[in-house]
Computed example of a mutant assay.
Amino acid sequence: MDRIIYTAAGGAARVLEQQAIISNNMANVSTTGFREQMAIHRSVPVVGQPGMPTRVSSVTMTPGSYMGQGAMVETGHALDAAITGDGWFSVQTPQGEAYTRAGEFAVNEQNLLVTQQGLPVLSADGAPVEIPERGSVTFTGDGQISALGAGDNPNDIQLIGQLKLVNPPAENMVRGDDGLFRVAGGQAAQADPDVRLVPGFVEKSNVNAAEAMVGMIANARRFEMQMKVIQDASSNAERANSILSTN
């Protein structure tokens, strides 16, 4: 009876963990540049005190993310850009360089190009991108940034830098707690001249809302099944105890 309860309780715990991951994906359906988080179950041997294996448990893992392209939505905003195909924007964080697909940029009070979270966007030379005061910005397909200052002659447009666009192998990318990606090992990725972007567009989340909803419903049913097994095991134990009772 103990084995039944142990197995069902372990299964219910794994279902709840997977449900949390799916719920997080569902909550980010509208998040620009979000990458769907994957979840799998794997077995883990349980080792007793003397070092001998006793039984096998299981854990839920998030081995990576689905890197497929999200939907491209035209915004018409000069500071918006979306990467087409593989690649990442580079940003500066307190923990070092990180990478994102979210191209909804803005200009902060220090005239730096930043993300919606206020993180400086990096240029190809690894420095923050400085925008002329009240200047209008234009991106090109290879990430070059041109700006025209307020009141300047349209012919005086100047090239102020180039975005650092990178494309490290997907298997080397690790998602952080802040939702940004970093290269495993902590080193900075090299700029890739083959990465291309589309100005005036943003890339939406690559989470399929319908599939996420179906997954949540399926997990709810699996959890109910595990709870039913535990209830049945408890009822069977009570019946067995009543039969063995001498009173």
Rank of each mutant, 00 (worst) to 15 (best):
R101S: 11
L16A: 14
V207T: 14
Q116R: 09
G33A: 12
G87Y: 02
H77T: 04
D2W: 15
K204I: 01
G11D: 07
F139E: 00
V174S: 07
I5D: 08
R221T: 11
M26G: 03
M213D: 11
V129K: 08
V15D: 06
G141E: 10
F139H: 03
T140F: 06
A12E: 01
T32Y: 02
Q117V: 01
Q19W: 13
V137D: 03
T100I: 05
D178I: 06
G186V: 10
L113K: 05
A71K: 15
Y99W: 08
Q18C: 09
P50Q: 05
M1R: 08
E171L: 14
I40S: 13
R221D: 10
E104D: 10
I145A: 04
V44P: 05
V129S: 09
A82L: 13
L165E: 08
S30N: 14
V214Y: 03
I157K: 02
A218Y: 03
G186S: 10
L122W: 06
M38G: 00
P128F: 13
D152K: 11
N172I: 00
A20I: 12
S245L: 01
L180Y: 07
E17K: 14
A188Q: 13
A191F: 04
G51M: 02
T138R: 04
S30Q: 12
V229G: 03
I131Q: 05
F201Y: 15
P120Y: 04
Q69T: 15
S30M: 10
L165S: 10
A209Y: 09
A102R: 02
E36M: 07
E17I: 06
A82E: 11
G176P: 08
N247L: 06
T60C: 01
P45W: 03
P50S: 07
R3C: 00
P63R: 09
G103S: 04
G135M: 02
A147F: 11
S23P: 00
D125I: 01
I243W: 12
